[in-house]
Amino acid sequence: MSGTGRRHGRSWPGLILLAGALLCGPASASPPARVMSLNVCTDQLAMTLAAPGQLVSVSFLAREPGLSMLHEEAKNYGANRGLAEEVFLQKPDLVVTGTYSLHNTTALLRRLSFAVEEFSFVQTLDTIPDEVRRMGALLGQEDKARAIADGFAKELADIERRQCDRRPTAVAYEQNGVALGSETLADSVITAAGFDNLAADLGVVGMSPFPVEQIVARRPDVIITRDPAGAPTLGAEIPRHPAISALPDTRVGAFVPEGSWSCGAPAVMEAVRALVRLREEIAPCPEPGAPR
């Protein structure tokens, strides 16, 4: 029931986005000179694509290693906290942000006649090439974007072609015992790398609390956790529950590079590659042509 509701809720920003794109699409011929990004995921795309000096600031979360693959690069840019006042002071030609996190800010900025482009919160591997191209178009970096997007799509297709019927089960188990189910970026990565996502198989949609008991009862082959970042939290303890450590045949660890699958950006491929290596180690596919 709640899953259905959530799906409905998500389609609305998509419609708004589409309408926004049609109304205030690429009207100006010259690319924007000053661009601000307010969301850690648009940060990744903007930092990848922007010309030198074009991007004036990114969100402060872009410097968090746990959330941002490009956290080192982020230090070269100013940091904003996504406040309308900051935007007002920096007077960018274009603001890029996510549909979800800063909804009120977006509305306010539009009232103040800023050009705001929103990127959807729902991302999977399949949406990434289009998102890259869209950001490229917004920044006037179409060629660079096309190259990155095409390369990404090709590598993904290669990887998916190399899969077979041997699909070990995996679950992405986050802080506080939250699992990543279907319609998440992590699910698309897990699936693309040749695993079955246990949480999605059990009907989890999006991010949802997942009892340790369920994990133990289903004994996935792999539990992908997150390395605790900096200051301690209690939630970080849950994926390290003794009951999980007691599972004899289950591999538990931070198998994807830190921050690599927080956002739908080209760097997600790092996560796919890491999981493909893991799968080939624990359940190698037979050589093509070899008898099953």
Partner: peptide, 19 residues
């Protein structure tokens, strides 16, 4: 400094024996 800490407010204010 850990962005996940804020999610734990509910645990401390309305306790739980989960996990």
């Amino acid at each position: 400094p850990n962005p996940f800490a804020a999610y734990e407010i509910i645990f401390w204010l309305l306790g739980s024996l989960k996990d």
